[in-house]
Amino acid sequence: MKTTTQTFQLTPAAAETYEAAFVPAFFAQWVPPLLDLAGVGPGQRILDVACGTGIVARLAADRAGDGAVTGLDLNPAMLDVARRVRPGITWCQGDAVELPFPDGSFDAVLCQMALMFVPDPERAVAEMVRVAAPGGTVGIDVPAALADQEAFAPFVAMAAGHVGPAAADLLTAYFRCGDVERLDSFLRGAGLADLTVRTVTGRYRFPSVDAAVTTEVESTPLVERLDAATYARIRAGAHEVWRSFLTATGELDAPFATHLVVARKPAG
């Protein structure tokens, strides 16, 4: 795999699980506040960078009306699901660090829960700024730092103790862009202004711990990096570290913090 591209690659089966389980249980909740903060509205040209199965693009299209929405992702399996779920959107395969669009093509350029998987996030931000129109907005949503994740810090520590270095690196990758000062530096260094940062603590909800572990493993590249025994140890360990986040009926309801960062490209 090229070192300049995202490393979060999924099989077709994992992409389907991602859309069916992860999107409604986790990712969808942060889309409305991201769209609100970015001022997404009717008639706009919108790009969803590293779109996955397209939840941001789909909800943006609902707001854009007669505008034009494009979703871009490196992973063909993700795009296949996106096309099936919402065929009316333009779906493109491409690299976040080499966006295949002319300068100033979009009124809003968005990236939800993906920048941390790009080996060169600073370059990806610069590309997002390049394709944003003068006066347009760039909006990014990333998980807060692992140290700020009450439920996930102990889960990652437990799981990392059972897996090899490659899988442990994937577990911690989710939180690599959680430093707000670093994000601020990327955005200002790329020429953006009027930065707004909002930390939103959402919920990580699943019918059970087992359902959460299944989704975490089988809708991510972890599924290809664990043997059955290691998978079982992680499942057992999750029941211990997430015990305090169970409801009376056994559902998992844990906090998860993200940073929404939106900035404007100067008009002139």
Rank of each mutant, 00 (worst) to 15 (best):
R225N: 09
P143K: 00
V241M: 06
I89N: 03
P119R: 07
K2M: 12
P33H: 09
V156N: 06
F117Q: 01
V156M: 00
P87I: 04
D194S: 13
L99R: 02
M1D: 12
C92R: 14
G136N: 08
V209I: 12
S208E: 05
R233Y: 05
L226A: 07
V125C: 08
F175Y: 10
F245L: 11
F245H: 14
R176T: 11
R86K: 14
A13D: 15
L195Y: 06
Q9E: 14
A263E: 03
A77C: 11
R83E: 09
V262Y: 00
T215R: 02
A229F: 08
V261R: 04
H239T: 06
G189K: 06
P255E: 09
T214W: 12
E127L: 07
T249G: 15
P143A: 10
L74Q: 10
A151I: 04
F186T: 04
I234A: 01
F106K: 07
F175P: 00
E98A: 15
K2G: 11
A126W: 02
H162R: 10
A263H: 02
F155C: 09
D194Y: 04
P87C: 10
D80A: 15
T199D: 14
T3A: 14
A114H: 03
L10I: 08
P12W: 09
R130L: 09
V261K: 00
E224P: 01
S219R: 01
T215P: 01
M116C: 03
E150T: 12
F26L: 11
G41W: 01
T5K: 13
D179K: 05
T137V: 11
M158L: 15
A57W: 08
C177S: 14
T249K: 14
L79R: 02
D80C: 03
L74A: 12
A229T: 14
A254N: 07
A190H: 07
L260V: 06
L35N: 01
L192Q: 02
M78C: 10
T70G: 00
I234P: 06
A254L: 11
A57R: 01
P266A: 12
R243A: 15
F106H: 00
E19I: 07
R198D: 13
A254R: 03
E240D: 15
V138P: 02
R83S: 09
R243I: 04
T249N: 14
L226D: 06
F27C: 10
A82H: 04
A133Q: 10
G88A: 11
C177W: 03
D179T: 03
P134H: 11
E98H: 15
G139M: 04
A126E: 12
D48Q: 02
V129R: 00
A145H: 03
S219A: 13
V163C: 07
T7L: 12
A229V: 14
E240G: 00
W242A: 05
L34E: 02
L195S: 09
A168Y: 00
D210Q: 08
F256E: 03
A238E: 02
E218Y: 13
S208D: 09
D120R: 11
P24N: 10
D36N: 07
L252Y: 11
R58D: 02
G39T: 06
P42A: 15
A167R: 05
A114L: 03
V69W: 06
R123T: 13
T201F: 08
E251Q: 15
L226W: 08
A13R: 14
Q9W: 15
V131G: 04
A82C: 09
A159R: 01
A144D: 10
A157P: 08
L99S: 09
F206M: 12
V81F: 01
L37S: 10
